[in-house]
Computed example of a mutant assay.
Amino acid sequence: MPRRSRVEGDSLRAALDVARRTYGPDVRIVSAERVITGGLAGLFGRQRYEIVVEALEPGQGPTPPRTGAFPGSRRPGIAALLDEADDGDQLDPATGRDVEVSTGGEDFAALLSGLVAETTGPGPATEVDGPSTRPGDLVALVGLADDAVAVVRDLAERLGVLPACAGTAGAAGLLRVAGHRDTVEARAMGVRASTSVAVGVGVGRSADAVREVLERLGPDEVWVVVDASRKTEDTQAWVDAVRHVAAVRAMAVVGRELTATPDSVAALGLPEGWTTADIEPGA
């Protein structure tokens, strides 16, 4: 059975760092409190944060892989939450008592909800301006068959990123990334060109196949390329397979001009970060 322990620090970030150093990187936050002691009528007191974390007992083995097993694809949401809390923007201590545990407010509840969610697995991004163009970054755009090829070509034309392909996707003129060495070389090309590498990844509907190709790539971001003209249920099934093994940052949409319900992809619950409305799937 997992065991629970209480850890404290001068900030939420400090407390979480202590917990991870003590109990391992996969600890899960169960609850958090901000405590103020001393001072005058609650003013000028010492402020500290206490968190209760849950960790496996020795010998229980590692926790199962979380959604978003690729480090570079994790959103920095937990860092943002902790920064906001440390700055005092969301957790304003009440005054009037020697010890104040400010856990009852809606702001604290919202913060804690997000913090706990981040330690158990990433949630979907809410706003995306487009894939990374940082030099050397590798962005995996995962789609069925060759759907992602049109997108990486569009990204190359409009953003200047380097286009490539992997998995079952392929097209003449695109760099092919098949293994670790190819990935390193592609990243180096991106650094030299001062841009990122957009890899169109062709997959089927198997989560295992998705995991295999993404483990070879080790992407900094994972996107899905969805065809708006396909049945929503079919698209949902393979997208869920991708989300089972990676943190999907956003979706790129193709095939809108081929359907009378172009906005059906909104049902996937992912932010739309790129649209190629005038490009047919597999083009």
Rank of each mutant, 00 (worst) to 15 (best):
V18A: 14
P62D: 15
P2W: 05
A169H: 04
V151E: 03
R176Y: 08
P163T: 06
A166E: 03
F44E: 08
G61D: 03
G143Y: 05
V27Q: 11
S11P: 01
A80Q: 13
A260W: 05
A283W: 12
P281Q: 12
L268P: 01
A41F: 15
V213L: 03
E272A: 11
V225D: 04
L155G: 01
T235V: 14
P124I: 01
V149M: 02
D107R: 15
V199Y: 07
T275S: 15
I29V: 15
I36P: 00
G173K: 08
T119Y: 04
T183S: 12
V149A: 02
L159S: 10
I29R: 09
V191L: 13
Q90N: 09
D10E: 14
V7M: 01
A14V: 08
S194I: 00
G202W: 10
Q60T: 01
A166R: 05
D227K: 05
E106T: 13
G190M: 03
L268C: 02
R176I: 02
M251V: 13
G24K: 11
D240C: 00
E233S: 14
V201C: 07
E157D: 15
G24W: 11
P281C: 02
V152N: 07
A110N: 12
G190N: 09
G200P: 04
A32D: 02
P262K: 10
G72M: 07
V265S: 02
P124R: 14
W274Q: 04
P58T: 09
S194A: 15
V197T: 05
R28V: 15
L174N: 09
S196K: 05
D83G: 08
G130K: 11
G123A: 13
G143D: 07
G200E: 00
M1P: 04
A277Q: 07
P219W: 09
R66F: 05
A250E: 04
L111H: 13
V265W: 06
Q47G: 11
